[in-house]
């Protein structure tokens, strides 16, 4: 990762870029509420089409990239951003893992164009991949949407000259500390034990099983997890759960291959 030094004393130039996605992750910047006001006082968000009328080009100290390149021009934009930024952060599970758009990999692209873009079959669409397939990515802020805490940790850490301390451990640690009911023990298909923490355990805290939107922990024990999770759901439903947000996570591919062999 680019070594950002605070020594310059200059305000960080931040760009927030939008590729194909539902833009929910960049919206999280606007949802920062009080932190947003403090943030814009402390740094210069010079590129943020969702919130600014006039947007500047690089160079950037940090670029947050929301979404996946699904059109050739988006790919050009992504590469231009990489060239002009020190630290490039994938913002959310689309840019980190393909996100919901990557569900196309489980269907025929031609069929999808036919059904989704009826009458626009000539649409120049790329196969969807995480942005790391095209450019070097310094940080992954996972989640659907990305977590506000991680956004602030990224910015404050880079201002201070610290590597952002993003959590790599499973949701269960934070969930237990919050003393939530264990949904998995109640028989619900909660992906918490194999999903990265960092969102504040949003879903299980309100009684909704973790959907795994933040993607796998390091070295998840999927074999055992599947055995436990299928007590509360069917195998096909479970596979669909894994395919929902982070279907291109490398850790999941073996599981999907095995599934393809079964169907």
């Amino acid at each position: 990762m680019g070594n950002l030094s605070p020594a310059s004393g200059e305000r960080l130039r931040i760009g927030i870029f939008s590729l194909t996605s539902d833009a929910g992750c960049q919206l999280e910047f606007l949802n920062l509420a009080d932190d947003l006001l403090a943030l814009v006082r402390a740094v210069d968000i010079v590129h943020f089409p969702m919130a600014r009328t006039f947007n500047q080009n690089g160079p950037f100290d940090i670029a947050f990239v929301d979404g996946v390149p699904a059109r050739p021009d988006e790919l050009d934009l992504l590469q231009e951003v990489r060239r002009s930024t020190k630290v490039l952060a994938a913002l959310g599970s689309c840019s980190s893992f393909g996100g919901v758009p990557a569900a196309q990999h489980f269907h025929d692209l031609g069929d999808l164009k036919k059904y989704v873009y009826r009458g626009m079959e000539d649409l120049d669409t790329l196969e969807v991949f995480p942005i790391s397939r095209y450019v070097r990515v310094d940080l992954q802020l996972r989640g659907c949407p990305a977590s506000k805490w991680e956004i602030m940790e990224t910015v404050t850490a880079l201002i201070a000259g610290r590597l952002p301390q993003l959590k790599a451990y499973p949701q269960c640690v934070d969930c237990k500390i919050l003393e939530n009911r264990c949904l998995l023990l109640e028989g619900l298909p909660c992906l918490g034990p194999i999903t990265r923490a960092g969102c504040g355990v949003v879903c299980p805290s309100v009684g909704v099983p973790c959907d795994g939107c933040r993607g796998p922990t390091e070295e998840p024990n999927l074999t055992s997890a599947i055995e436990i999770l299928t007590r509360g759901t069917t195998y096909p439903d479970l596979i669909r759960k894994f395919q929902k947000f982070c279907s291109l996570a490398p850790e999941y591919q073996e599981m999907f291959d095995r599934w393809r062999g079964l169907v």
Partner: peptide
């Protein structure tokens, strides 16, 4: 790592 990179500055 995190600290040693910063020490080098």
């Amino acid at each position: 790592g995190n600290l040693t990179q910063a020490l080098h500055r």
